[in-house]
């Protein structure tokens, strides 16, 4: 384990950016987790991958960053706690700037690799099926598909997070993959293990390790193949499905009720068949908020 960057912090130990490196030479892969301090499924997945790499030295270099935002994680906060800034909005960063700009700059330098992965959880109020978000075509799509995660979400340019670490990697000419799974504030060991298998398949595809697990992809879609269900009114949302469930058109996804008294306001039924990829977890919802997403599968 190496400390690739550190900065003086008042009232507590220095902030340190930790990197675990396995193997040497090309190809080089960098995997980042915990950029948001309350999204730690990725951290767990990266640590599982580290255990696998200790048992099997890769043919090439793997840099792992299990937890970038240690200070945020200490307080269960997404952002950098001092000035409440999002490190993921500080890229490409500035070595002479604020603390988050310095951390962003150091992380960008330290992830000098051919293929880079940034792992997040969903927001604290939604649960997401483990997925990779990739462009509509090209090498990143090929690499994203090689991860074999349950959902491959092909997105148009503007929806691919042009800013942030992913955008900074692309600007630097690196292949960048955006992985999301589970929800913030909670550890989901099942989703973490799924993400770890996906990371291992990526390394296998690149020839760094022998890969054994079969592909787990259920849906490989663009936006038009995803049914989005929003709240017609505010209320209390009770889900009737979990992420990963296969549904047919008309399947009951959940219902909205009055928060006080519990009178039923409305039902949510699947408009299309497919796999449930997003479910609202926090029940108090505003009108127009996302409740459930269903992605089309090969069979639907």
């Amino acid at each position: 384990m190496t400390v690739v960057y550190s900065i003086e912090a008042p009232y507590r130990g220095r902030y340190e950016l930790h990197r675990l490196t396995f193997g040497s030479g090309s190809p080089r892969v960098a995997i980042v987790a915990g950029l948001h301090g309350n999204e730690l499924n990725g951290m767990h997945a990266v640590n599982m991958l580290a255990a696998a790499l200790r048992a099997q030295r890769p043919r090439g270099t793997v840099h792992l960053f299990p937890l970038v935002n240690t200070f945020g994680a200490d307080e269960a906060r997404k952002r950098w706690p001092f000035d409440d800034r999002d490190i993921n909005k500080a890229f490409p960063g500035d070595p002479d700037g604020t603390a988050v700009q310095r951390i962003a700059s150091a992380l960008l330098d330290a992830t000098d690799a051919d293929v880079c992965v940034d792992v997040h959880s969903g927001a604290p109020h939604v649960r997401e099926l483990p997925q990779v978000r990739v462009p509509l075509s090209g090498r990143e799509l090929e690499l994203g598909r090689a991860m074999g995660l349950p959902l491959v979400w092909r997105r148009e340019g503007a929806r691919l997070q042009a800013s942030g670490l992913i955008g900074a990697w692309r600007d630097a000419g690196r292949q960048a993959l955006h992985v999301v799974g589970g929800r913030g504030i909670t550890l989901d060991t099942g989703h973490s293990a799924t993400i770890a298998r996906g990371l291992k398949r990526l390394l296998g595809h690149l020839g760094l390790v022998r890969h054994v697990d079969p592909n787990e992809t259920v849906a490989d879609v663009t936006r038009v193949e995803v049914g989005v269900h929003r709240a017609a009114t505010g209320g209390f949302f009770v889900p009737e499905v979990r992420v990963g469930a296969l549904v047919k058109p008309g399947h009951l996804l959940g219902y909205l009720q009055m928060p006080i008294g519990g009178d039923r306001i409305g039902e949510l039924r699947a408009r299309r068949g497919g796999v449930v990829v997003t479910v609202r977890a926090w029940p108090m919802v505003y009108a127009q908020e996302l409740l459930v997403r269903v992605a089309g599968t090969d069979s639907t």
């Binding site: 000035d83 002479d96 700037g97």
Partner: peptide, 8 residues
């Protein structure tokens, strides 16, 4: 008063 290196 609390500042990090780089804080304005």
């Amino acid at each position: 008063p609390v500042v990090f290196p780089g804080t304005m």
